[in-house]
Design a protein around this nucleic acid. Structure first.
Lengths: 255, 255
DNA sequence: ATAATAATTGTTGCATGCAATTTATCCGAC
DNA sequence: GTCGGATAAATTGCATGCAACAATTATTAT
């Protein structure tokens, strides 16, 4: 098993393709093994392949991802910073177990952050930026009308990201980026029902209008309620899901 | 926050690994080298020993801190997550250069976070927690009256931390802790003049009163203005400092 | 002398080995 | 049969070595 170097060796098929560059701002040039590890492990957590509370062993992951333990270890530090895994002293690292209310929690905090982002952005956005946002909003509208759920969610994320970055507040962007993976994880376990979808889109239209009008106070309020409504919908969805799970248990289904 | 059991019943705050808050240990214990590195490097950045933009070389740091490159490298990942350093692809790591308005920026965001924390805390705090907060506030008052500036700042930090943790919102705590080092760095370059000190203490008294009264709306407003006032004072202080520096340059002083 | 290029040095990225510590297994006592 | 302790296996933390990449200096051509 003594693998020497792995130069240019795409020999390992287990590596997932790395297309989206969600979080890192480092250019994925050469030393990308660590970043690949971060993305792969994050994906595993989102997909549920790694269950909450599950132990992450360095050797197992390194073999699965076709790299040595070092980049895995370093990826752990990054993921720990995102709160996706917990580093226990001399013991294994485990996938953090999301509190049952984590989804609501993270959206609440994101709501506060984006409300502030909206305030700052209305003051600081250039006309070009508002124009770009208009295009993004048009995309969103298109995906809503064509009922393209996945594309809509991506456009939605882009808009929120754009507003946050337009706040021109490095700390705000930093904190927002930190929480984003958790929100994504939360989103992966919930579903967007159609009523909420329509409502959310309507809210987005108002948000866009408030930005164009540079109505700071209104935008803040809109963003706050946008997230609060999302949390509400989420809680309902969760309650429904729990009820379904209970029903399955009673029906004798185990998996 | 995603932790399984709380080991040995130590009612530790809701934070995961990040960095354990032990006080200085000279003995090269085991399993803590990485955390020591994080703390040491952070301190160097705060103290200015490592200037913004300065390159961090792994070997130099490892020799200075008496450890190998590995824990240094891992510490870099953590610090990069905090935004204190920037990781360039295959090049050196550099101390991130704080934007000249970073202090105001980070305090603005912290203000929004703590305003939310206050809202949540008023709903969720137990009577015991309020009692503990009362003790912390009494400490603060004592240090204010005895004009013990350093102890006051520490007590101040403890109170804010306690409120944040009392929010019982893992995401909020996570984001807050992320920004804290930046705020500390900002604080290290500013001074608290006496007028602002008195004003801030007065605000703290009102904050405490609002918590006892569980007046959510008022607390939120108080915290917001508490931070806004802090930012204001900061900007004035910065302007003063810049003026002084200019004067020194004209006077021919270089150090 | 200057500019382009090649050799050299320095630094980061990754792999691997070893020691320390934790976790798991087995055996005996109650 | 269950609990407790000693031993063995597994796993993490750290150190170190090697190769790739970047920066720097030396060399050569114009």
């Amino acid at each position: 098993m003594g693998r020497l170097q792995n130069p240019a060796g795409k020999a390992s098929p287990a590596v997932v393709d790395t297309e989206a560059d969600d979080i890192g701002k480092e250019e994925p040039r050469k030393g990308r093994l660590r970043l690949d590890a971060v993305k792969s492990i994050r994906k595993m957590i989102f997909s549920g392949e790694l269950a909450p509370g599950e132990r992450l062993r360095e050797v197992a992951l390194s073999e699965e991802l076709g790299m040595s333990r070092t980049p895995i270890r370093e990826a752990f530090r990054t993921l720990a910073g995102e709160g996706l895994i917990d580093l226990l002293p001399n013991r294994s690292v485990i996938v953090s177990v999301p509190d049952k209310s984590e989804a609501a929690d993270v959206f609440t905090v994101l709501g506060a952050l984006e409300a502030l982002a909206g305030q700052l952005a209305t003051q600081r956005m250039s006309l070009e930026q508002i124009e770009i946002l208009g295009e993004l909003h048009a995309d969103l509208a298109h995906y809503f009308e064509t009922a393209n759920r996945l594309a809509y969610l991506e456009a939605n994320r882009l808009i929120h990201e754009y507003i946050v970055e337009a706040s021109d507040s490095p700390s705000l962007v930093l904190a927002w980026r930190l929480l984003l993976p958790r929100a994504e994880r939360a989103r992966h376990v919930t579903t967007l029902d159609h009523d909420r979808w329509a409502e959310a889109f309507q809210e987005h239209c108002e948000i866009y209008a408030a930005i164009v009008a540079r109505d700071e106070a209104r935008l803040k309020q809109l963003l706050e309620s946008h997230f609060a409504n999302g949390v509400e919908s989420l809680k309902k969805s969760e309650a429904r899901k729990r009820a379904t799970e209970r029903a399955e248990i009673y029906a004798g289904r185990s998996g």
